[in-house]
Design a protein around this nucleic acid. Sequence first.
RNA 1: GGGCCGCUAGCUCAGUGGUAGAGCACCUGACUUUUAAUCAGAUGGUCGCUGGUUCGAUCCCAGCGCGGCCCA
Length: 517
Amino acid sequence: MSEPEEPKENDQLVQRRANLAALVERGVAPYPQSFRCTDTVSAIVAAHGDTSGDDLDAAQNHTTVAGRILIIRSFGKARFLVISDGVSRLQIYVRKDALSERDFAIAVRLDIGDHIGVEGRLFRTRTDELSVWAGSLEFLAKCFLPLPEKWHGLTDVETRYRQRYLDLIVNPAARRVFEVRARVLSVIRNFLVDRGFLEVETPMMHAVAGGALARPFTTHHNALDMPLFLRIAPELYLKRLVVGGVERVFEINRNFRNEGVSTQHNPEFTMLEFYQAYSGYQDLMTMTEQMLAAVAREATGSEEVAVGDETVSFAAPFRRMRLRQAVSEALTEKLGTPVSEDDLRQRETVAALATQVGLEPGAEQGAGKITVEIFEALCERALIQPTFIYDFPTEVSPLSKQRDDDPDTVERFELFVVGMELANAFSELNDPVEQRRRFEAQLRGREAGDLEAHEMDEDYIRALEYGLPPTAGEGVGIDRLVMVLTDSPSIRDVILFPLMRPKATGDHAEPIDPDHS
RNA sequence: GGGCCGCUAGCUCAGUGGUAGAGCACCUGACUUUUAAUCAGAUGGUCGCUGGUUCGAUCCCAGCGCGGCCCA
């Protein structure tokens, strides 16, 4: 049990307590059980946002509605309250001669942030504002702490992330981001379900953290006395399901990666992964174009999305370029001498090229890994419009299937938009012998100090030995997709409660170092 | 992990080596169709924390905390 943080005693807190005490003294319940509404604010605005004052007067629409007070404009014997249901706002007109003495006494003791319920008729004021002419009023809950300012709202990003409820109360744009996010998830589900995909949930706690190249969070199961890892990807479980005959399968859920925090990385993030049997990666490029166009259209209203100063078009088809092609072109331009794709397959040549552009390739890095690092340094940032970068080096893709004509290259693509990796997909490696070889190569990397190298997963190899059909699979970063669709500069803007370091408030438990367990 | 920047009233922000200011909010008064309501007046501060320099530090210096941006 931790003590609740004591709000600082400021004049506004004192005043708000006094206002509630005055109501209680008059017999008003400070925390009533419920309030029966006939309408929400949003429903009223949707139904009558365009109804004229004359029509409202003729219709005599009565309503009972509740919300949080955001603005009070007081005129002595009358006052205007603006209430919100979290989405829309509606003005309430309160005048002394229209209310009981009790209800008007409540009205003059209200503070910004309080919850109220109102019964009255809809009308338009002289300035044509849709309003409720209050006939009665109920106090529903007290707001003891003052809300951020009405004009500038809440701009301090730290407070917006730590106290998201304040952000949602005063910044309508914050609410919109999470509504778009909800639609994105809904559109994706419908898209996949319509195509015969089964949605599943696979374990979040893994004995072997596999399916991606990343460092995991570590935990411990007491009863079984065994270490467990928060999953870094659901990939290997989803492919076990394809072995089990679930030929089209997807999961939308959280992954956890014990890495840095940035505008593009949160330690827990939401990923869509889907697998389609009897398909290859080229099929998924086409499907991804269709899916993202539908997502943009249905979640934002348009396939064209404004992101910063750019307009991003999700209309199919997307640009496609081989990874080595992108890197060789970038190097040719940067260095002023021709660099061929074949140059990128010779370790010594590509290492020298990397050095020329300011990178420091490690001795343990092969040609493939160095090529990818050059790509990240020179190419990624410039990929504004949706672009598939395909055919990756085998070295960096331990779970992908090689090309028939080129064992150094796997059938894999990543999708980039506004310089961010949004998706990663490949034809799945389904040869258990080759898979074992790849894991063993990763283990050698791990022994050389690569903490992100993939671990051996014997159980997964056994599943492959039962026969995984030719399958293509893809992961899509939902948070980053929502960032693009909502023009949000930070991943924290699209995650309701992003990870924050706790504010020091005196004594606290010593954090456990997962690397020393 | 490194570099740079920020932290001042509830919120948004100014400002200064001599103990601090505005707007909004809050309080008092006026006001029964306003909408950033208006008008008049009055409150409100551990200037992130800890040290140092100084007669004196919110300001200069150092360390720490939290956050932001960039880099790895």
